[in-house]
Design a protein around this nucleic acid. Structure first.
Lengths: 240, 240
DNA sequence: CGGCTGGTTGATTGGTTTCAACAAGCGTGG
DNA sequence: CCACGCTTGTTGAAACCAATCAACCAGCCG
């Protein structure tokens, strides 16, 4: 059974059978985390976890209750391996749905990258892609309107989920609540609701049963000015 | 003469004399870039440059002219070394003032990290700090009000400039125009102007002659809810 | 049944943008 | 030398996008 972490890394580079075996062996015993529970808190000792199932996020919470989701973590994604260099985490990680995640120890990680140049490359590239996504979010929050922002996120999620084989054609699971979307896009849930209605009214998407259906992918991409280059997925693997 | 790149890396970890020599030797011949000129464009072949003098930024420019400055680069900072793994840049880099920068080749970089664990650590830590700053900017753009955002940026710049020895006490050079600030904070220059006036009215800062004077550092930090932890500067070196 | 979460809609407020005009500084060229 | 254009900063008035406040509904679960 190929897990999404393999799929994700293979969207960057071809992995040999040995690579795949090593990578799978490096994962510790998976553990489950309840929806809405914290995976790690600010100030914790850093640890590297790979998300095998479910959606999670990095977030910052302010004293007065305001919350900003800083990045979304989808199945097959991990937190930055280099984070082990720090002695305390600078942000919290939370489960948005029920999640299962597998730890990788620092030693296992070092062994992996020492053994396989391909894995080393794939892991570094994952870090670069994460940074690039973070920059794109910065640009979105700074300069895109509400409807562009939401459309852009939907496009991004479509591409990222497709890369790990979790999208069915032009629709995909959408477990986020409107509040979660609001916290990710720097808005209120009320306004997300209205923007969602507008997108529906334009015939671009509909959201039923926690599942997003993109009726007009190119229309959505055009509205959002979406260009998938920043995700750094290799087109072949990324497409399917 | 110690250059700011040394200062910056030493704010993370102690470097031996050999480390300092190796690092200095790794830098190629410095070149000057005019203010407002591009250092690299989207789609360029990636190269690692260290900024020795002047301020620069990473930015994204949309087709309709909207611009978002995604991160600021201060003297002593470099672009992500791992970027060499990619075949095209996903963002543009521009000089905000006249800059001088020195290239580091991939080979020189590999030699450095192979020779010195301290340098390897410092460079990785620089990457982590950059990522952390990027997350903080995301949080700022998403959830902070105009005045908090500006105050937070001023606090951040004070800490970062202090780390490379470019702040004089509680004031520092501020070469950014109000338009630049607007593009960094996701606002219009008109509103930056008004927000600046508000900060001045509160007696927190004043901005004269391209130099920012912080009259009430703790008041400014309190308004911004600023906590320097995310910069990952070691306190001693960071303080000076 | 009652309480809770998540979604929906309307009315109102308010922070920020947009548009517009103008002043100050500064380099350039006639 | 001064006129001119250009950039940067400043301020006012109006328009607008999104937040806030509030009410209500549906589904779910103890």
């Amino acid at each position: 059974m190929t897990h999404p972490f393999l799929r994700k890394l293979q969207s960057y580079v071809h992995l040999s059978d040995a690579d795949r075996m090593w990578l799978t062996e490096a994962l510790g015993p998976p553990r489950a985390v309840a929806a809405r529970a914290d995976i790690s808190a600010e100030g914790d000792e850093p640890r590297v976890n790979v998300l095998l199932e479910g959606w999670a996020c990095r977030y910052r919470q302010f004293a007065d209750g305001r919350r900003q989701i800083v990045s979304l973590l989808l199945p097959g994604e991990a937190c930055d391996p280099d984070i082990l260099l720090l002695d305390r985490q600078d942000h919290a990680t939370g489960a948005l749905t029920r999640c299962t995640l597998a730890p990788i120890s620092g030693a296992a990680l070092r062994a992996l990258t020492a053994r396989s140049p391909a894995l080393d490359y794939a892991l570094r590239r994952e870090v670069l892609a994460t940074a690039s996504i973070q920059r794109e979010w910065t640009a979105s929050l700074g300069r895109r309107s509400a409807i562009e922002r939401l459309a852009h996120l939907f496009c991004e999620l479509h591409a990222r989920l497709t890369a790990v084989g979790l999208a069915q054609g032009s629709s995909y699971p959408m477990p986020l609540t409107q509040s979660d979307l609001a916290d990710a896009l720097g808005q209120t849930s009320v306004h997300i609701n209205r923007t969602l209605r507008d997108l529906r009214g334009l015939g671009l998407v509909s959201l039923v049963n926690r599942c997003l259906i993109v009726h007009d992918p190119s229309g959505l991409a055009e509205l959002a000015h979406f260009d998938a280059a920043y995700l750094h997925l290799t087109t072949r693997a990324g497409r399917r």
